[in-house]
């Protein structure tokens, strides 16, 4: 029962995207690539959100992942996608694990604010340090695969699809495990969970590390997809806000939701920017308000309704 229907849909859909990526025009592939990369961070936020926790500083791990790639590239010349991904996951995982000891005791607005403070500390350090590229950030060299340097972005796109599929299935498995079932239980009543003989703090810690790793991986993939890292669009509080926004847009319903939500966000932003260069923030912000007011289940609830009714 671990590999359930949702998992197979994710795998098949991402496989279809990976194949389609060869035929579709580059700009659509780019949008999908950015969308999927960011979706991993959203997936991490979704795990937290199901417990009732919202982090307003997840750009902290997103940025850590992205900057790990940049620093590995610039200082050690590491261009291999696997090494970069492992590096980003290790850095964000270890730091997430250490920070988790403090954050696992925090809830609600305090959790949100402490996350925000941490991400702004990192932002403050990067922005003022020339060795870390300050406001400019860094350009990143094109990724290689086991020493093989392909032309074009398609191989990276396939790689991102594969990583996304693996992560989505892993998260789905986790949510179906005992630890995962505690997710909603903790949100509903922590005291009762403790009475069942389970440690709430430990469960939250695991979720936190999981979400940190996912955000770190997302940052790593995003950095490679863009070929660029910079603090304002990757570490600043607005970047964290964007991630939470996509989480709300996607809805907590399923591990598939973040992927759809992120791509919708990417398209929304692109078209808003194209049609109304002076008012794209208005369109994005207006969408956010509309969703909070009228569509608390996010885009996923619409899909569920449409697809669910027919079948």
């Amino acid at each position: 029962m671990f590999f359930d229907r949702t998992s197979s849909i994710v795998v098949i859909a991402l496989f279809a995207c990976a194949v389609a990526g060869y035929f579709i025009p580059d700009w659509i592939m780019n949008q999908l690539m950015f969308g999927f990369a960011r979706a991993l961070a959203v997936l991490g936020l979704l795990v937290l959100w199901r417990t009732g926790l919202i982090s307003f500083g997840h750009a902290f791990y997103f940025g850590l992942g992205a900057y790990t790639v940049a620093l590995l590239d610039i200082n050690l010349g590491v261009s291999d996608v696997f090494l970069r991904l492992v590096g980003a996951v290790l850095v964000s995982g270890v730091i997430g694990w250490i920070v988790g000891f403090v954050l696992r005791n925090y809830r609600d607005i305090f959790f949100a604010m402490l996350s925000l403070a941490l991400s702004m500390v990192l932002y403050g350090i990067i922005v003022k340090t020339e060795a870390l590229g300050s406001t400019d950030g860094f350009s990143i060299s094109a990724p290689t695969f086991f020493g093989f340097a392909p032309d074009g972005k398609y191989p990276l796109f396939v790689f991102i699809c594969v990583v996304c599929a693996i992560c989505a299935v892993a998260v789905q498995m986790y949510l179906n495990s005992t630890l995962g079932w505690m997710t909603t239980a903790i949100r509903d009543n922590e005291v009762r969970v403790e009475y069942l003989g389970l440690s709430v703090a430990n469960a939250v810690h695991v979720k936190y590390v999981l979400s940190a790793v996912l955000a770190g991986a997302a940052g790593c993939l995003m950095a490679m997809a863009l070929g660029q890292v910079d603090p304002d669009s990757m570490v600043n509080w607005t970047a964290s806000g964007e991630l939470v926004f996509i989480t709300i847009l996607s809805g907590p319903g399923s591990v598939i939701a973040p992927f759809i939500g992120s791509v919708v966000f990417e398209l929304l932003r692109t078209y808003a920017f194209e049609w109304a260069p002076h008012a794209w923030q208005l369109i994005v912000g207006g969408t956010l308000l509309t969703i909070i007011l009228f569509l608390p289940g996010g885009v996923w609830s619409v899909i569920e309704k449409v697809v669910g009714k027919k079948s």
Binding site: I54, G241, F245, H278, Q281, G285, G286, L288, L289
Partner: peptide, 12 residues
């Protein structure tokens, strides 16, 4: 988050 949306709208 809603006020964040509002912030974006008011900026423009």
């Amino acid at each position: 988050l809603a006020t964040f949306g509002l912030f974006l709208v008011l900026e423009d």
